[in-house]
Amino acid sequence: MQVTLLGTGDTTGTPTPGCDCDTCERARELGVERTRFSVHIHNEVTDESLLVDISPDFRHQMLDHEVSLPDAALVTHIHFDHLHGMGNAYRLLSSLPVHAADETDPETGKSVAETVAGDYDYLDAVTVTGHDAHESFEVCGFEVTFVPVVHPPLVCYGVRIDHGDASLAITGDTNFGIADASREALSGADLLLADGITPASRCQYHPLGGDHHDDDGVPRTFGTKHMTIEGARDLAAELDADRYRVLHVSHFTPADRAFEDPLAVDGEQYQL
Rank of each mutant, 00 (worst) to 15 (best):
P70K: 02
I78S: 01
D132G: 12
H251R: 15
D124M: 07
M1G: 07
H213W: 07
V246P: 05
C19I: 11
V149C: 02
D121F: 10
D180R: 14
T35L: 10
L50G: 04
E48L: 13
F146P: 00
P106Y: 09
T12I: 13
V128K: 00
D190C: 03
D121M: 06
F80I: 06
D20P: 01
H60L: 14
A237G: 10
G87L: 11
G18T: 06
H79C: 01
M86L: 15
D190P: 01
H163Y: 08
T8D: 03
T4K: 07
G172D: 00
P262F: 11
L272W: 05
R183S: 07
C24G: 05
V139F: 05
V139A: 14
A27N: 09
S94H: 13
M62C: 12
G85V: 04
G13Y: 04
V52P: 04
G196C: 05
E138Y: 01
S68G: 14
V144A: 02
T174Y: 02
F58G: 01
D10E: 11
L235N: 06
G18P: 06
A27G: 08
E230K: 06
L96Y: 08
G7P: 05
S182Y: 01
H213A: 15
M86D: 03
T108S: 09
D165M: 02
E138V: 12
S136G: 05
H212P: 04
R160P: 00
V147F: 00
A241D: 05
A255D: 15
A241E: 05
H79L: 01
T115I: 12
D165E: 14
T129K: 11
L93H: 10
Y157I: 00
D165R: 09
R202K: 15
H226Y: 12
V52I: 15
P254H: 08
P106M: 11
G13R: 06
V149G: 00
A100F: 00
Q2K: 15
A27R: 08
A200D: 09
A237F: 02
P207H: 10
G164Y: 07
C19D: 14
Q61M: 07
D10G: 11
S201H: 06
A113I: 03
R26A: 14
H248D: 13
E268K: 08
A189M: 06
Q271E: 15
L96P: 08
N88S: 15
Q204D: 15
D266I: 06
